[in-house]
Design a protein around this nucleic acid. Sequence first.
DNA 1: AGCAGGTGTTTTACCTGTAAAAAATATTGG
DNA 2: CCAATATTTTTTACAGGTAAAACACCTGCT
Lengths: 185, 185
Amino acid sequence: MTANDGRSATGGGATDATRGDTVAAVVRQWRAVHPGLDTGPMEIIGRINRCAALLQQAEDAPLRRAGLSRPEFDLLGALRRTGHELTPGELARETFSSGAAVTKRLKQLTERGLVERRGDTRDRRVAHLRLTDAGRDLVDGILPEQLAYESAVLSGVRAPERDELAALLAELLGQLEGRLDALRV
Amino acid sequence: MTANDGRSATGGGATDATRGDTVAAVVRQWRAVHPGLDTGPMEIIGRINRCAALLQQAEDAPLRRAGLSRPEFDLLGALRRTGHELTPGELARETFSSGAAVTKRLKQLTERGLVERRGDTRDRRVAHLRLTDAGRDLVDGILPEQLAYESAVLSGVRAPERDELAALLAELLGQLEGRLDALRV
DNA sequence: AGCAGGTGTTTTACCTGTAAAAAATATTGG
DNA sequence: CCAATATTTTTTACAGGTAAAACACCTGCT
């Protein structure tokens, strides 16, 4: 499901641990209203959506302290981890965003002195972007904080389960990435 | 991680199934640049984010055919599955969105005749929202399509793994929902 | 050479969300 | 009863994204 699956808090009360997470509660509501439907997919998709929402909310905190939004950090991170210059188009593919969005972010990041632009000498349509020293230092400063914070957030799940979860997610993601073009809606 | 984990396509080539999903590739890049860091959290958080992004993109298609955005459907769905009227504040909590966003969506959905508003007689600040017949029919029409579509998207993963995945996600989500207030950044 | 069509990037117009302030009403304590 | 405070919802100003169009440039064909 999209929203009615993992994007809902159930009622005004506190989380009732004995009855499961919020997604379980939502699924129960749906089953009560539509007893015939197979709500199985909600148990996975709903939880992935909800986990993603909670994790992102938590993760944005360290970034905001550094004055960056997540999409901005995505862009800087792509430049950092690839280790070489990227064109706007490559950055768009790399960060899964639209070209227009990349253009806007690049404008701001360039003004802030985190990124530098260089025109291609052969093809004058294309630009090459690279991190400035300040940009690289910023990413390198944030990344360990971010990872440490993520470790803390995940610490409630034991290592063997974490590995199992990572493996299953990898399988699902592989399917999704390979598929979705075929299933092209 | 936020983005530099699951939000990236790796290079221009096609997906290389033998080398894992895109997240694995991104993690490799980070490890090459920062060999000292524990990139473990990326394997989970990155994949959750990326799965969520892909799933949402796929799921939005059936909704768009019905002329609804996902946040709009969230709102209608909350009304449908709870089975009773909700106030704007309750809807905001139920859909995890801000009050202002709910106000805007309600305005549009009311204009479209999918939702009806009724003022509270005791407390004249609060409103009560309910689905119109058209709204209920729309939700009931979309939901089975949505679930069927989701089943198809998940069909690449076998049932036992799906159950295992759902269980592990439930555990993680339980931790996150119980925790995050405690870990309040 | 010159043009048709393709590609890379930016611009435009618009839409939606957010945070903070405002508005309207309720509640509480003197 | 009144003033102060709290609560519910809406409004405002703005930041950021998107799709489609516009721009600028390249490539290949004739």
